[in-house]
Design a protein around this nucleic acid. Structure first.
Ligand SMILES: [Mn+2]
Ligand SMILES: [Mn+2]
Ligand SMILES: [Zn+2]
Ligand SMILES: [Zn+2]
Lengths: 141, 141
DNA sequence: ATTCAGTTGCAAATAATTTGCATTTATAAT
DNA sequence: ATTATAAATGCAAATTATTTGCAACTGAAT
């Protein structure tokens, strides 16, 4: 009943497809591409349409329920929005999973930005590499 | 004659289209999208083909002559590779120009990554906002 | 001048994402 | 429960960015 309130609070209707998207992301506990999410949601709602997925990923991200991340290949990954607040991501090139890191570099560049007369609005910090189970070599241990 | 050597050193032929791409980037002194580069190169070589631009942006980036950057809208920007070494970028949402910043956050997260057993390979750090001439409001001063 | 791998132009193919529109549905008001 | 309506969905078509196959061409080496 947690999600239902989240949706209602932001004026969004509680639909099966939205519940399925969130369930998929909760189960996987990682960030997934729109396609991955679509494939998994289909197992729950065989008739879902891809554009419903896209529309909801976008909408729920803008409403702060999900968080999106564009990786360097140009595809976006989506995950549940962490309540714990601002953070960044590690993306494993082996398994594709991502983890959050709490460190944010912004405070360290503030002076450099001010000196250049640049007013920051958003920023990205993403570290690519291999997670513990994928190892340094690029595939399973 | 500077560029010619750069190309030859990496086993790349010196072609008019490569010279034009580099000239366009040198003149603008900023990062441009493939489309912007295509449009400007066309003024020099009316018959260039878009796929030649794409192939060369990719190739010259991989050879370290250019440097590419994927912004959060999913388009890539390209610029001359800075000799000065590793750096990151500010991207102005007003004029689209980007500037380099020397600060790199990697040293600050190394321990956190080690603790998580994550072996980093690449990383991105991009700050979006408004440059001095575009102001805080989003358009020219 | 000859040669040949590397490069280009062109057209067609991908891939990711977006949009228009008719139909359906969640929710609020009878 | 019934109704009303804005929001949400499915479906197909459109966009956008980028990639690829292939035949013709060209830079650089011999
Ligand atoms: Mn996140
Ligand atoms: Mn750069
Ligand atoms: Zn941050
Ligand atoms: Zn760095």
């Amino acid at each position: 009943m947690e999600l239902e309130n989240l949706l209602k609070q932001r004026g969004l209707k509680v639909t099966d497809q939205r519940k399925a998207i969130v369930k998929v992301l909760k189960d996987c506990n990682c960030m997934l591409s729109a396609r991955d999410i679509f494939d998994k949601v289909k197992q729950i709602i065989p008739g879902v349409n891809f554009s419903t997925i896209y529309r909801n990923l976008d909408l729920m991200s803008r409403k702060g329920i999900l968080c999106g991340l564009m990786v360097d290949t140009g595809v976006s990954l989506y995950g549940l929005h962490r309540e714990e607040g601002h953070h960044h991501h590690l993306v494993c090139k082996g398994c594709g999973r991502s983890m959050a890191i709490d460190y944010c570099p912004m405070s360290s560049v503030e002076k450099e930005l001010a000196k250049k007369g640049f007013s920051p609005t958003e920023h990205e910090f993403i570290v690519y590499g291999f997670c513990g189970s994928c190892g340094t070599s690029g595939r399973g241990e």
